[in-house]
Nucleic acid binder design. Structure first.
Lengths: 117, 117
DNA sequence: GCTCCAGATCCACGGCCATCGATATAAGAT
DNA sequence: ATCTTATATCGATGGCCGTGGATCTGGAGC
């Protein structure tokens, strides 16, 4: 029997064939899922997670020079982690003279937090 | 409270010289942070996050044959993602005949969820 | 001008990741 | 026993990640 190229087994199943029960589609939209996955990915490193923990527990902004000695990684590596957190929208920074102060952006974790609940 | 962080020379130095304000140590212990980071990392992929969303919204166990057509990845790739989620302790599976049924392990997301809150 | 210093950026390396095709496994179905 | 089906595993590939040393940036102070 010739293979129907239009209807792959995948498409056939999606179209109606079900082996078990009605399909449950994801409730999260793609953009929603991608945003949350981005945040989760940024938290998916023990150093970054602990970093966020420190920043969250400290009311106000924390100087990088305080953060570096807390973790056994080099200063460039820590800077890289902070940069990743900022790229994910979790933290932001403010420069004052020589120093840079980081803080958790308010509400940055809210979406993921609510979904997880 | 701080912590199972041993006082490396680096950290001892940090304890003495402060450029800005008193140091705030991470509240999460290392194991705690690593467990949560592992969960977050597993959720750090849009497909896996949506996968968990489907499983969570579906009361009961979902057959893999239902999951595959929901995502535009090959069956081996989806199997790989499910395997990652299982390795992170987020989901578990049960085999019945030819089919495999996946479900979210109760409480698997609780720790991260509480920390995020 | 010049020198320090905090922090960011660049570069390279080793390793892990997401992906898919092919194949293996294992359980019906015939 | 043989064929078919659902899922897992294997092998390979291209790319991204975490890391640290070296370097750059630019503000502070001389």
């Amino acid at each position: 029997m010739a293979v129907d190229l239009e209807l792959t087994p995948k498409r056939k199943r999606a179209a109606g064939e079900r082996c078990c029960e009605p399909i449950v589609y994801p409730d999260v939209e793609r953009e929603h899922a991608e945003r949350m996955a981005q945040v989760a990915k940024a938290l998916g490193d023990p150093i970054r997670l602990a970093l966020v923990d420190v920043l969250r527990r400290h009311a106000g902004k924390v100087c990088v020079c305080e953060l570096v000695p807390l973790f056994d990684v080099s200063q460039p590596t820590l800077s890289h982690h902070l940069s990743k957190l900022r790229a994910a929208g979790i933290v932001d920074s403010e420069r004052r003279g020589l120093w840079a102060y980081y803080y958790v952006r308010p509400g940055a974790l809210h979406e993921l937090s609510e979904w997880l609940r």
